[in-house]
Amino acid sequence: MSDAELTVEVTGAVATVVIRNPARRNAMTAAMWRQLPVLLDGLEADRAVHALVLTGAAGTFCAGADLGDLDELLDAGDASIAVTAEERLATFAKPTVAEIRGACVGGGCQLAVACDLRIAAADARFGVPPARLGLVYPAPTTRRLARLVGPSAAKHLLFTGELIDAERALRIGLVDEVLPADAVAARVAALTGVIAERSRLTVAAAKEIIDERADAERIAWWHGQVRASGEAREGVAAANERRPPRFGWTPPAAH
């Protein structure tokens, strides 16, 4: 029986998905790629969960896709299970943070880039190796990487397949913060704790708009939610009274 799996831990309002494949430095197997969207569907529907952390077990984020499943990935092209999982992570309705230590390569980098924020340990290493393997990086994945780091940096990563360290990843915008390895978990917990306390309406709307997934009708719907929920009135009242706001908006079951 394989010990490669994704596990979920929930602490307060934050869910943590942990990538586990100790024999392969947490490489994602076909079963794990298929498992991720299912887990995300459940966590998105759970109204008690306000934010999600993606990380890897035992000091490694993810060393990529398990190439034992190469034929399946090649045959599917941009419709592969890896791209499907990545897209589901990118469209997850709640804030997502990648907590990165050690190797974050190939499919691991793909998953990290699909998160909203990335907090890295100083020992983290990043790479996008298709040019070393003769593969074509999926178009949605390539475009997401280029939007994040810019065309030139994306080309450098893709053309060379070289690993870069955390400091360079920070300079090009691949990660948001770099910390000593023993400080990363506390920082991610603090960050997600702050996000979980903020207006879920504001955060959800901001994510959709920034990711260009909200058309004019959807944006009007968000403004209607502000009016109907009383969220802004509560926020202003709390600021005037110098107290923490008591936000109560929760996302509809479906839209």
Results as ranks from 00 to 15, higher is better:
A30T: 07
H50P: 03
G64R: 00
A228M: 08
A220W: 04
L145Y: 00
A153I: 02
L174C: 06
I219W: 02
V17S: 12
H223F: 09
N240W: 13
A79C: 08
L191G: 10
G173P: 08
A185L: 10
V188W: 00
F126K: 01
A27M: 08
E212Q: 15
D182L: 04
V136W: 02
L191M: 15
A98I: 09
E217Q: 14
D215M: 11
Q225S: 13
I219C: 12
R200H: 12
A206P: 00
A65S: 14
R246M: 05
D41K: 13
A189Q: 15
G193L: 03
E231W: 04
T16Y: 01
L163W: 05
I210W: 08
R118M: 12
G64K: 00
W222K: 04
P245W: 12
D123S: 15
E217N: 13
E86V: 07
A76W: 02
G106I: 01
G102P: 06
C109S: 08
K94H: 09
V236L: 15
M32W: 04
P151H: 14
G106D: 14
A239V: 12
A139R: 14
G134M: 05
E167R: 13
P138R: 02
G59P: 04
L174P: 00
V184C: 09
L111E: 00
F61N: 02
R34P: 00
R25V: 11
A124C: 08
R132D: 03
V83T: 13
L6E: 07
A204W: 03
A206D: 07
L6M: 10
A23F: 03
F159D: 15
T16M: 04
A139N: 03
E212Y: 06
R47M: 06
A57H: 10
Q110I: 07
P95F: 04
E9Q: 13
L74E: 10
G77A: 03
T96A: 14
R147K: 07
A186P: 06
A146Y: 03
A166M: 06
R198S: 12
I164T: 07
L191Y: 13
L170W: 03
E9P: 01
R227Y: 11
A112G: 15
